[in-house]
Design a protein around this nucleic acid. Structure first.
Lengths: 234, 234
DNA sequence: GCAAAAGTGTTACGAATACACCCATGA
DNA sequence: TCATGGGTGTATTCGTAACACTTTTGC
């Protein structure tokens, strides 16, 4: 029977929608596009597209993200599937949501103007089409959880970053203030940050040390079953 | 344009697979069925079916679960979508996995013999078809996380249960030993267990007090933003 | 010399852990 | 009366939270 098909089953559209989180060194933002086709033309929407026959869900999400933003090789993780019957008024469609994390400033050229995409502060989101708002809320919840237990925050920063920058990022993600000393102790305590011998002098006269995420060390620790905590304190 | 269709997009099969966890007061188990059609006929499989045009994902999971096991009104939560291109050799299919939690003994009649389903200890699973093993692993991970922060463990027990039973459950979920005194303090400390005035004398001469989960109190606490911890100690 | 951001240590409190004995009952 | 499982309290340890001053440097 292999090679035949399942008979008499409904075939439907599978969409993919990407919640793209970005950080501009001060605020957590979301990349949205003006939808240029009906329905809801002109409204804001997540980056989306349809799954094709010969690509996996992960591949499809990457393809769509690349096509709509020029972005490649960025952190992308499946959130969950959304499947209400009437979620898309045009045709029955289920959507698998993915979320992506990028450093806005390192990718500003790729996300060119002609993509008609804009960054919105997560505190000032416009109305979104369909169930996209629900997706965003779920993604933010997931990001908050993930960033407290896995080193995904670094995806939102350039390769080399300072501890004050990292702290600002966590403060943006959790929308809270964090004590500097406790934050540093915790982060350095994970022992997966490598101090470089360079200083970042953009933001202060004294300058702040640049660090890198040390992924080898991180994987070592994971294999040993250590579970790190990046959770903000206070 | 509303009412028209998205043109030229692939339509595909969307399957649903249910990872059904059960607890028999001593072990955490999984309900599997012998697949009675090709391919992989005769091998063990999760409970599955296909999404139809006019039902949501959640509804579909409920329907499939009911059809295959007779179970109704049980805890069911989406895990995630699985979408490798070749995951089903018959035809391109993506599958959305759900996991369910039930008390085995309260449902033994419903899950009748004629469903050709059997319970397997999570420590002795047979080989599963397709990517079902991956789904099971992901579900167990999710269950472990969920049960430490949300009151889902109670779904695996009868409505009234004793603290020793609850402890056995947590020990089964986390495959670990837990100190009795610490466990009780933690569980009672959540303040969402209501002691009944009945004792369960099945397992001991002295008898153990029966408790109920107090969902009203739980929701109150949630609204106040308290976050409870059901995590096992030691 | 002063403004502005970077960097550093210690104390106090509360939560998690480890641990051992008494209680009630049926056989 | 004894075997079996149910139930209880405390001391110690460790992690988290709170908190303020010094350093560097460009202007």
């Amino acid at each position: 029977m292999i090679g035949s098909q399942y008979k008499d089953q409904d075939h439907l559209l599978v969409a993919l929608d990407c919640i793209i989180f970005g950080f501009d060194r001060s605020e957590l933002k979301l990349l949205l596009i003006k939808r240029d086709f009906e329905p809801e033309k002109g409204k804001w929407s997540l980056m989306g597209g349809f799954l094709t026959q010969h690509e996996s869900l992960d591949e499809s999400a990457e393809r769509i993200l690349h096509k709509l933003t020029g972005l490649e090789n960025i952190y992308l993780e499946q959130l969950q599937a959304f499947g209400e019957v009437d979620r898309d008024p045009v045709e029955r469609t289920i959507s698998v949501a993915y979320y992506a994390l990028i450093d806005i400033l390192s990718h500003s050229e790729e996300i060119a103007e002609d993509y008609s995409a804009s960054w919105f502060s997560i505190h000032e989101l416009p109305e979104l089409i369909f169930d996209h708002r629900q997706m965003v809320d779920a993604a933010l919840k997931r990001l908050r959880h993930k960033a407290s237990t896995h080193p995904v925050g670094f995806e939102l920063l350039p390769e080399k970053f300072t501890l004050p920058e990292l702290q600002k990022l966590y403060e943006a993600i959790y929308d809270t203030q964090i004590d500097k000393r406790n934050f540093r102790r915790r982060m350095l305590g994970t022992d997966v940050l490598r101090k470089t011998n360079q200083k970042q002098k953009k933001f202060s006269k004294k300058g702040a040390w640049l660090y890198e995420f040390d992924s080898e060390k991180y994987f070592e620790k994971m294999e040993q079953g250590d579970n790190l905590v990046f959770k903000p304190l206070n």
